[in-house]
């Protein structure tokens, strides 16, 4: 074999090796991301259970004892952001992403229920927004805008708690929530303090869906919220 042919074959082999290494490295990093999410999810599940148990044990205790819920919600929010990024990278059909998303959705629902119980027991009055989106192609042109607007509203108004749900996720608890809240498959869909609305036009119009004095009275000392952006 001539030197040129040998160089050409070696070059092909090395190029394939470099490309393979890069693909492996990127997949490894993605796996690490998923593992990181899994760890975070497991920890949050334990924390949630702990708060719920604590709440159950101290039915009549001062509400300050369950204030852990605040930091918990912040972590759920962080998990949501990371899950959203992972979903973008690996795809909405990725089995690991779907599994994580189901767990995350369960966490959100539990956090939502906990928030409701806390608000009743402790006379807290958080503004809660349930946001339903769809990842089905062409079914929700405004979901990206709605998700970003909700993130903005949550971060600038910490009293607002946002829970984002993939309407089509195959999860019994989510289906029950959708049935309980009577949410139709029109996207984006919102349930803000129990009131259902559909569609997103502008941020200013969207703000009208919130209680009249909400944006005027918000303080920076309240609870955090969760948001998962739709892809």
């Amino acid at each position: 074999m001539s030197l040129n042919a040998r160089n050409a074959l070696w070059a092909l082999l090395i190029t394939v090796l470099i490309t393979g290494t890069v693909i492996y490295a990127v997949n490894y990093l993605d796996e690490q991301r998923v593992a990181q999410l899994d760890d975070l999810q497991t920890r949050l599940a334990t924390d949630t259970l702990s708060v719920e148990t604590q709440f159950a044990l101290l039915e009549s205790a001062p509400c300050a004892d369950v204030s852990e819920g605040n930091t918990l919600s912040q972590e759920v929010s962080s998990l949501g952001d990371k899950l959203s990024v992972t979903e973008t990278r690996l795809g909405t059909d990725d089995a690991q992403v779907l599994e994580l998303k189901k767990q995350y959705t369960l966490l959100q629902i539990r956090d939502y229920l906990l928030t409701k119980r806390l608000s009743t027991a402790c006379h807290i009055d958080p503004t809660v927004a349930l946001y339903f989106y769809s990842n089905t192609a062409g079914s929700c042109a405004d979901c990206d805008r709605a998700a970003y607007a909700l993130s903005y509203l949550h971060e600038t108004n910490p009293k607002l708690r946002v829970y984002a749900f993939d309407y089509n996720l195959d999860l019994g608890a989510l289906k029950t929530l959708i049935a309980v809240e009577k949410v139709d498959p029109k996207f984006p869909a919102f349930v803000i303090n129990g009131k259902r609305t559909y569609g997103f036009t502008t941020l200013d119009d969207f703000k009208l869906q919130f209680p009249k004095d909400f944006f005027a009275t918000t303080t920076a000392t309240s609870t955090a919220a969760t948001t998962t952006k739709k892809k």
Binding site: V22, A25, V26, R89, R145, Y148, T202, D204
Partner: peptide
């Protein structure tokens, strides 16, 4: 433009400044 329409620029820019290794878009 579509996503950020109506959102204050100060907020949009503050989003870009945060750094977490998790979000580094490493791709093939």
């Amino acid at each position: 433009y579509f996503i950020h329409s109506g959102i204050p620029l100060s907020y949009i820019l503050s989003q870009k400044l945060s750094f977490d290794i998790f979000y580094v878009p490493v791709s093939v």
